[in-house]
């Protein structure tokens, strides 16, 4: 599980995938002046953003030690699909309009790993298509996780209260469930 500085070509691929879903320039804003580093594992590739000052440490290869995390975890490519890390979602919410706001009850259910029903939806960004990924927020603007719409956002108003609106992809309850 060695670390590698991500090549320009590979980063371009990540950028295209992310920007296509969350808006032009989102990847560049999130990256800032940090350097992308990748770690391959059996499950896929994880991307991290680190300070370029850390080149001096990375060059030493961490002999006798196995890197588990460094800097900020940007996301992972698993089975060919990119998924943001939970810790990036707080920043992502500020640079993308793709939000879905849920009620208090919906927030509770979502952070227990449940998907989102129509009755929990307080607000959703307009013009989003089915399968679009959205950042899930509570009414105070706190980030709860990431979900994938199961219907076009314009159709949500017409659904019954118990109909599925968005599938849970990642939620902050995972921090506790995964311990």
């Amino acid at each position: 599980m060695s670390l590698e500085i991500v090549s320009q070509l590979d980063w371009q691929m990540v950028t295209e995938v992310v920007d296509q879903e969350f808006g032009e320039g989102v990847t560049k804003t999130l990256r800032g002046r940090l350097m992308p580093v990748s770690k391959k594992s059996k499950k896929g590739i994880s991307y991290y953003l680190v300070s370029s000052d850390w080149m001096r440490f990375l060059q030493n290869k961490f002999t006798d030690f196995e890197p588990a995390h460094l800097g900020r975890r940007f996301g992972d490519i698993v089975e060919g699909r990119f998924r943001f890390s939970l810790s990036m979602l707080d920043e992502l919410k500020d640079v993308t309009p793709n939000h879905l706001v849920v009620s208090g009850k919906g927030a509770e259910a979502f952070t227990y790993g449940r998907s989102i029903l129509k009755e929990s939806v307080v607000e959703v960004a307009p013009g989003l298509s089915r399968e679009q990924r959205v950042v899930v927020l509570n009414k105070h603007g706190d980030c709860l996780g990431l979900a994938s719409l199961t219907v076009d956002s314009e159709r949500i108003g017409r659904l019954g209260p118990d109909r599925l609106v968005a599938k849970n992809l990642a939620d902050i309850g995972w921090y506790i469930r995964n311990e």
Partner: peptide, 16 residues
């Protein structure tokens, strides 16, 4: 998990 939950960005976590 805790590093990520707490918004830590200056850590290198190594197993060894």
């Amino acid at each position: 998990n805790n590093i990520q939950r707490c918004g830590v960005t200056n850590a290198i976590a190594l197993r060894g």
